[in-house]
Write a protein that binds this DNA or RNA. Sequence first.
RNA 1: UGCCUGGUGGUGUAAUGGUAGCACAUGGGUUUUUGGUACCUUUGGUCAGGGUUCGAAUCCUUGCCGGGCAACCA
Length: 553
Amino acid sequence: MSEEQASRSLNFIEQIIEGDLSSKKHETIVTRFPPEPNGYLHIGHAKSICLNFGLAKQYKGKVNLRFDDTNPDKESTEYVESIKKDIEWLGFEWQKECYTSDYFQQLYNWGIVLIKKGLAYVDHSSAEQIAQMKGTPTKAGTNSPYRERSVDENLALFEQMKNGAFENGTCVLRAKIDMSSPNMHLRDPLMYRIKHSTHHRTGDDWCIYPIYDWAHGQSDSIENITHSLCSLEFEIHRPLYNWFIENLEIYPSRQIEFARLNLDYTVMSKRKLLRLVEENLVDGWDDPRLPTISGMRRRGYPAAAIRTFCAKAGIAKRENIIELSLLESCVRQELNKTALRAMAVLDPVKLIITNYPEGQTEQLTAQNNPEDEQAGSREIPFSKELYIERADFLEDAPKKFFRLSVGRNVRLKHAYIINCTGFKKDEEGNLLEVYATYYKDSKSGQDVSGIKPKGTLHWVSTQHAQTAQVRQYDRLFMNQSPDQTETDFIENINPDSLSIIDKAYIEPSLQKSKKGAVYQFMRIGYYARDAKSDQLVFNRTVTLKDGWAKKNK
RNA sequence: UGCCUGGUGGUGUAAUGGUAGCACAUGGGUUUUUGGUACCUUUGGUCAGGGUUCGAAUCCUUGCCGGGCAACCA
């Protein structure tokens, strides 16, 4: 890891940090991850988490987890808990757990400071009027009739606001900056609005709540955040971020913007994810098809793979849409090293080994992971009747088909080489059974047959097989950018994003699998035992690469 | 048509005035008791024009294209 870092080129944020460190602007760095507890974390947040926590670790600094809880109407402790769980699962630790709501009193005091400086005023205009007076990006705004209230009047009104003298929406506190600024955010931005709502942490202590711009930078400053990293959309907020800090004369945190992560074939906005959840289009925030951290966890994506993915995606300022294949490649890379192998037959057809003794069973030894000696081995029962994959037999097989067809040899994984002798079909032409004979001297590990079959099949002994439900997940959307089509993004949902196999046959050892464990079903893909179900349910994490399928497209 | 910001292979991301590299994807191949893995290899790129320079992805200039900004959201 350290070698990797040494040879790796620096991203633009690392360059800024190293500059600040070498110029002694900072002794050490402090970053923060500031989620609003109004939804579950997704892969886009993971990028920010890896960045902020990664930087702190890399430069031996600190990182705070700060809940930006300034809007009680949309936030809840359910979200707080899920966010903490997800960050920990991703493998990160925060120095301090902070809440913007802890700073409400300080923020209020600073509001008074700005009023006294003549830099803030209480505006009794309606929301509509304020919007009207804001102007447009190409047209200057106009001053509010309340803009020139005296300091004393503002002080008294602000206190009344805080004390609950006004109904929701009666008035707001605004910074007095410049209604003709080309930057809309500098046209007397709102600082406080009245909300007679119960906050999940402060209860009914407050009925005025700070707006993002008037809370975020100040919270950064209070925590002595050196580098406040956020996404590109806040670039235009930076002058305001700095204006508040300068006029308050408080610790100058520096805001730096980077491009958020986008993945193709999915949606990332919390609003859209919330809609999928609320309209029951998916099975909750942790549906394995969702790009949420909890969904990916349930699907079987290892935390390490998500971290690697974020590192490979990189940090820059240009907008990007990353291909799902990069994420999947990281997942496969990690799982190939760690997942135990097992055999499962998803679309079964019976294979009868005609020359194998009736009623005989052999226990065969199977390596748990060829990539990892330490993983050990297990026993698998073998018998005369097996299930194999329907797709592994073809009546009229092309030359390059290295599977079963009458007359061809094939290796049964961990077992014998067999020769296909025949098959049975029903009147409609559906394959019922396949017949073969085995070579006694070709047993795995002690093969002296001299036969070199081209293909190897997975199988499960019919009398020993267990059954499980297997959920075949595919991408949730059909379009590369589902939220950029003319139609509602909901209409772009892939109707085949989930297909359920109620009765797949699995090898008996899987009976003892633990919830959440991920296996490689040999020759098929990686599957995670569902963590929520008490039954044997496996969620497809990702398929194995399939060169044969690709070639036959 | 205001302001901010960005344009490097299909997708990401490096090169900070000196050989355009890496990863994923793609095509081909070697190995293999997983058509997996591993390894080798092919294709393909600096938005366009002009300028500065011995030398430009990089600096200047003009244009083109993309993203953002008018929530009592964050």
